[in-house]
Structure formats: structure tokens, C-alpha cells
Amino acid sequence: MAKEKSNKKEKKDAKQRKEKSVSATAAAKSRSKQPETAEVLSSKLQYQGPLFSVFSDHIVEPNGVECTRDVVRHGGSVVILAVDDSQSKRDPMIVMERQYRHAAGQYIWELPAGKIDGDESRLAAAKRELIEETGYRAKKWSPLVRYFASPGFLGEWMQIFLAEGLTLGDARPEEDERIDLYLISLSEVLRLIDAGAILDGKTLIGVQFYARNRKQKTKS
């Protein structure tokens, strides 16, 4: 009797999951008929700085909501997951930085990253930033993943590149950059993430996305 009740419950749960999946698909199709971006009724510059600008936009969102949103506009940034597997293919080394971040009020473990200069491409910016901050050059480059860091108010999206086939040269950090450079095994970086020692968003996304892809490739 208990087994029969358990089977009925499993069937009921499966049916509910299927119904939710179907309703989600239908909702997505319905939304696809709506405009994809907001109608901007007015936009006022509130702050202009060397790194970013802040605008107050009066808009009508695709769902019909009329409101004012404060938006931080930035020229764009790139992130580099630089991997050295010359010593171990199973547990490669990751180029990591540790530097003080005033906004966070603490030292942060993170992947190399930086802003795009002028009209340079994201890949060109990634190659330049890797050299400037770490001294490393890479033979192979490929886009790994991109993401919006905080889409509630920040318009910027960040592209993470995978850099492989590393050779070391001289770093050329900017005057206000004080960066400690480390080579840390992937397994140790993942351990630090699990321990809560790595709090930087781009590093959490880049390293774990890379580790998941490696795991899937190993299984296949």
C-alpha cells in the first residue's frame, strides 16, 4: 500500500512538472510577441566620471510599465581565465590576482580583467589586459561566457575569455594598480570558492563555468 501511494505521488509530481514546463513555454512564446526593449521617453545625465556615467531614464518597459530607472553606463570590460596545463592536464593552473578593492573594503581574489579602451575589440582588450596585469601572453583565445554583472542598474555586460598556451613576459600594470599574482591549481581555486574565500562575481562565474565544461567533456 505504501509503495502504491509513493508511485501515485511520483506520477502526480511528474505531471505537475510537465504542466509547469508547458505553461512556461507558452508564456515565453506569448512574451516573444512583445517589444524586446523599452521605449525611452527621456534620458538625463546625472553624473559623468572618468570610468562611467549615470543616467535617469524615463521609460515604458516592454510589459507596459512606465517608470524612471537610474542606469550606470560603462564602456565595457573583459575578463581573462588564463590556464596553464603544461604541468597537469587533469588539474591545470589558473592565473589569479589578489588586490585591494576599496568599494568592497577588502582584498579580493579575482581573475585578470579590465576596461575596453576606445574602439578596440573585446578580444584585443583581453590580450592587452592580460599582458599589462600579469605579463602572460596566450597562443589560443576563445570566448567562454558573457554575463550582466548587475542588470538592475548596470548596463554593462562582461565577456570572459579563455586563454591557453601561456608564455610569461613582463607585466605593465597601471600606476594605481598593486597586484599580487599567483598560479593556483583549478582544484584549489574550486576549494577556495567552496570555502567562501573567493567572492568576486566574474571569478565565480568564469572558473565554475570552465570546470563544468571540463567535467562534461570528460564524461563524453
Rank of each mutant, 00 (worst) to 15 (best):
E97C: 13
S88R: 09
V54R: 11
R172S: 11
V72Y: 11
L183V: 03
A26N: 15
V22Q: 05
A14E: 05
K5T: 01
D176N: 14
E110N: 08
G114L: 03
L154M: 13
A163W: 00
R73Y: 12
E164F: 06
V54C: 09
V60G: 10
S6P: 02
E61M: 06
R191E: 14
R191C: 01
R146K: 09
Y147I: 04
K12A: 15
K3D: 10
G105M: 03
G64Y: 13
N7L: 12
A14G: 04
G206D: 02
I193R: 08
I205L: 02
K20W: 08
I198M: 02
D13Q: 13
V83M: 06
S42W: 06
R191M: 09
T37G: 04
K44H: 14
I108D: 06
D194V: 01
E188Q: 13
I131D: 05
H102A: 12
N63Y: 10
I205R: 07
Y47Q: 15
M93K: 07
R101C: 05
R31C: 07
G114Y: 02
F161E: 00
Q34E: 13
G76I: 04
P62N: 03
G118E: 02
R172F: 09
G118V: 08
S21A: 15
Q16N: 12
V60A: 07
I160C: 15
F209E: 14
Q216N: 12
K9W: 10
K140S: 14
R31F: 07
Q216K: 12
V71C: 06
I198Q: 01
K89L: 10
Q48T: 14
D13C: 05
S56C: 05
A26W: 10
E133M: 00
E133S: 11
R128Y: 08
G165D: 00
E4A: 11
S77G: 08
Y210E: 02
W157A: 05
K44A: 06
S185I: 02
S6F: 11
Q216E: 15
W141V: 00
A104N: 13
E175S: 11
Y136G: 06
K140Y: 08
A126V: 00
A82K: 03
K202C: 09
Q106H: 00
Q216H: 04
P173Q: 03
S121I: 00
G196H: 02
R98H: 08
L204N: 13
W157S: 11
K44D: 14
K18Q: 07
L123Y: 06
A104V: 12
K139I: 06
V145S: 02
R17D: 15
A38W: 03
V72A: 11
A211M: 04
D170W: 09
G75R: 07
E156D: 09
E39T: 08
D117L: 07
Q87A: 14
E174T: 11
K8V: 05
Q208R: 11
A126Y: 01
L51M: 08
N213S: 09
T25A: 10
Q87F: 12
Q87Y: 15
A26T: 12
F52N: 05
F55N: 04
S187R: 07
R146N: 15
E164Y: 07
S86Q: 14
Q106C: 12
K3G: 08
L168R: 15
I160P: 01
A104P: 05
V78H: 01
D119S: 14
S21Y: 09
L81Y: 05
N213H: 10
K20S: 02
V65E: 15
R31P: 04
V72C: 12
D84I: 07
K202A: 10
